[in-house]
């Protein structure tokens, strides 16, 4: 499969903080690639750099052979990369419909394509069709997560960036979200998946990268990572943290 995105030696700084220290990764068309790591490892920073929300200090991000560095976020969406951000970030005082329509903002001239995208989102998440006139802020956490993913799909992206889609969801919902992620991928969308739920992420991804303190420590196929003893210990083990995170709203601020 052809290369979709290649990140080379990416450095990102926030003032004096170096959040990413030379990260290189790639994703082929059709893949689900997982990026795993502890809190503060730089996972969201990585996705935000791809989306153009944070400036690249050094290195390159190449999407289908074209550089994304210094391209404003709204142009990057137009090029076929969309993100469902951490913590959902639905527009709470807008309706579900409005949220979805904004997801297709770059496609607004293509009315039929937008209608098709919306039908697809409603098929993936029937609950959104039921709630389409409701204010997004009044949805449950799980529904908001579905809306956030659905909204990101509205632009019919080639590459979907998912930042912790299972965060704060009950286990049964986590399973559903991952099933749907698989379905979205089967329909032809490549996915860069940031997760703390390593077990789930690796059982759906083809490959994975482990991010530690802004650097990649280990990478490999999902099977390799799952059988890696260090990873088993740190990310797949007893994991009291995982359980706490899985049952309620995370207190962490974005």
């Amino acid at each position: 499969m052809p290369l979709l995105i290649a990140i080379e030696d990416l450095h990102i700084t926030y003032g004096a903080i170096e959040a990413l220290k030379g990260v290189s990764l790639s994703l082929d068309e059709g893949e689900i690639v997982a990026v795993l790591g502890a809190n503060g490892a730089g996972k969201s920073t990585l996705l935000n750099a791809v989306s153009g929300l944070v400036p690249v200090a050094r290195g390159r991000i190449m999407f289908r052979g074209a550089p994304l560095n210094n391209i404003p976020p709204h142009e990057i969406v137009r090029m076929g990369v969309s993100q469902s951000p951490e913590g959902r970030k639905v527009f709470s005082t807008l309706t579900v419909d409005e949220n979805l329509d904004l997801g297709a903002y770059t496609q607004r001239k293509h009315i039929q394509a937008t209608a098709k995208a919306k039908a697809r989102v409603f098929e993936l998440f029937p609950i959104l069709r039921e709630r389409h006139r409701q204010l997004a802020g009044t949805l449950s956490g799980g529904e908001q997560q579905m809306l956030a993913i659905g909204r990101a799909l509205m632009s019919s992206p080639r590459l979907l960036l998912l930042d912790e889609p299972s965060l704060g969801l009950a286990p049964i919902l986590v399973n559903r979200i991952f099933t749907i992620i698989r379905e979205i991928n089967d329909q032809g969308t490549s996915i860069l998946l940031v997760e703390q739920n390593a077990r789930k992420a690796l059982s759906h991804a083809s490959r994975g990268y482990i991010l530690e303190n802004g650097s990649l420590s280990i990478s490999g196929t999902a099977a390799e990572l799952k059988s890696n003893s260090k990873i088993q210990e740190a990310y797949l083990g007893g994991s009291a943290i995982r359980k706490r995170r899985g049952t309620g709203e995370s207190p962490k601020s974005p």
Binding site: S51, G52, L53, P72, P73, H74, V77, R78, S82, Q83, P85, K89, F91, S92, T93, L94, E98, D101, L102, G103, Y105, T106, R151, A152, S155
Partner: peptide, 18 residues
Amino acid sequence: ASVRAMALDRDTASLMGI
């Protein structure tokens, strides 16, 4: 709606392509 979204959350609005 894009103006209202921008008022609510500039970064997320940018992620919509606004």
